[in-house]
């Protein structure tokens, strides 16, 4: 059985980019700082294949201002959750789909597309989830700038005041 500290030590030894970027939040919880897409994709296969984090419980989308955040909750057989974070700029929100290696992430990745406007490359074709049919394109409700008060449910249109429109709130 590996302790949380031993896992961090081993990862930091293997990947210099992870030095000081992982911490034990509490027992059974390891949380990382945000990594770039390249860094994330470098670390993930090792975590999955060599460190026993072969299960994925979830991916949480977050709004990080100019960027979108993606927090992958990976678990091992000891029940330790390692929250590995990746971020991508809102102007080019591309990430790779992990649903090939972690089929348990497919619906959650569809959520990232619908609710945050992420572009998940390699996500298999399938129905959008969870927004309804006819949801207007370019509206991503979980981005901070998207205000539900401006959304008209009857016409399914987003009508921000002129000032907000100029800021292109919530739209690509």
């Amino acid at each position: 059985m590996q302790t949380e500290e031993a896992i961090i030590h081993k990862l930091a030894e293997k990947f210099s980019i992870l030095k000081d970027k992982l911490y034990v939040q509490r027992s059974k919880r390891i949380i990382s700082e945000f990594l770039t897409r390249e860094e994330f994709e470098q670390v993930l296969p090792y975590l999955r294949d060599k460190m026993g984090f072969y299960r994925a419980s979830h991916v949480v989308g977050t709004d990080e201002g100019e960027d979108l955040g993606f927090i992958y909750l990976l678990t091992n057989d000891e029940g330790i959750i390692l929250a590995l974070k990746e971020k991508a700029p809102k102007s080019d929100p591309k990430i790779s789909s992990l649903s090939g290696d972690y089929p348990s992430l497919e619906f959650h990745e569809r959520e990232l597309v619908s609710l945050f406007g992420a572009e998940v490359e390699g996500l298999p074709a399938g129905p959008s989830y969870p927004l309804p049919d006819g949801w207007p394109e370019g509206n991503y409700p979980l981005r901070k700038e998207w205000n539900p008060e401006y959304f008209d449910q009857n016409t399914m249109t987003y009508n921000p005041p002129i000032d907000d429109k100029e800021k292109e709130g919530g739209k690509k």
Binding site: F107, S128, P130, L131
Partner: peptide
């Protein structure tokens, strides 16, 4: 094809 999301 599993279609969910009707309650969101």
């Amino acid at each position: 094809v599993v279609g969910i999301g009707y309650n969101h």
